[in-house]
């Protein structure tokens, strides 16, 4: 089943084309939508919610047409905006219960659901206090809770890690992973940071200036670019020479070396080289920024 289908989806504003002939298909699970600021991510989400009519092209969300069935889409889809969107003088409970009702849940059901989702996103006693006093991390959780309160089949999360500290970012990403797997709710999550999405996504769509750069399963990204980061205390140059001599593809990056993994032999070659040169190996790690590298290459190639 397709969660999302777009065909030649285009949005032109006066003077700027926000989305240009976008054709993508995604299935259930967590889909990442990656692009720099202004790449058209938020525009795409607004169009998928049926709030912004396309200039041309078509799109379906959960089998519903965005041009004619916007109201039905909004009934079964949740949306977490990128910007601040919470009134300060209302408590999280009050707001989420109210927005649950706005999505069509009867009041008692909405109360139950609000208590459930606020617990799932990790808000406890503080949910009875006015939102104005919350930290950024807590506000992001409230924003997520209101997108989930009506138990949607799909949620659009626009830059959910924006403004969070590293720990808050990790917690938010773990939560997104849970929504996609444990909760069984499909997720379309946007970010301008590719690195963080590979940890939670099944599928990644990369757009740039409103055009599709790439859409593929996460495995395709990582397979193509499995890279090891190798760091030694001293003798980086010697190691570089030795590994190149052994037939490995090596690129220096700061103090580290990036070694392309051709197979199990790569690991052996690194081990042998380090032993032979009597180097102190301090780091041997699967490349962290694999998708970003792909992205960089593809942007350079376009």
């Amino acid at each position: 089943m397709h969660i999302l289908v777009t065909e030649g989806l285009t949005k032109r504003f006066p003077g700027v084309t926000a989305l240009d002939q976008l054709t993508v298909t995604t299935g259930p699970g967590v889909t990442g939508l990656v692009g720099a600021n202004g790449a058209g991510k938020s525009t795409l989400i607004k169009m998928l919610l049926g709030l912004l009519p396309p200039s041309s092209g078509r799109a379906q969300v959960l089998g519903l047409d965005i041009a004619t069935q916007g109201a039905q889409i909004r009934r079964v889809v949740g949306y977490m905006p990128e910007h601040d969107c919470l009134p300060p003088d209302v408590s999280a409970t009050e707001l989420v219960v109210h927005l649950g009702q706005m999505s069509g849940l009867p009041r008692t059901a909405s109360r139950e659901r609000a208590a459930d989702v606020l617990r799932h996103v990790g808000l406890y006693e503080e949910r009875y206090r006015p939102i104005g006093g919350y930290s950024t991390g807590m506000k992001q959780r409230v924003k997520l809770a209101q997108a989930l309160v009506h138990d949607p089949q799909l949620v659009f999360l626009d830059e959910p890690t924006n403004g969070l500290d590293p720990q808050g970012r990790d917690e938010m990403l773990a939560l997104i992973r849970r929504i996609g797997s444990e909760f069984g709710i499909s997720v379309l999550v946007t970010s301008h940071l590719l690195g963080e999405l590979e940890r939670v996504c099944d599928h990644v769509i990369v757009i740039d200036s409103g055009r599709l750069l790439r859409s593929s399963a996460i495995g395709d990204f990582t397979q193509a670019t499995s890279v090891l980061t190798v760091e030694v205390e001293e003798g980086t140059d010697a190691l570089l020479a030795k590994l190149t001599e052994a037939g490995q593809t090596v690129t220096p990056q700061g103090r580290a070396l990036l070694v392309k993994v051709d197979g199990p032999g790569t690991y052996d070659a690194i081990r042998d080289a380090a032993v032979e040169l009597e180097l102190c190996l301090t780091r041997l790690e699967q490349g962290r920024q694999r998708i970003e590298d792909v992205f960089r290459e593809e942007v350079a190639g376009v």
């Binding site: 909004r74 889809v77 949306y79 905006p81 969107c85 706005m102 999505s103």
Partner: peptide
């Protein structure tokens, strides 16, 4: 506080 998008992303217009 830009709460409006939270409403408009729901069935009400």
């Amino acid at each position: 506080y830009k709460v409006l998008p939270l409403y408009l992303s729901r069935p009400v217009g």
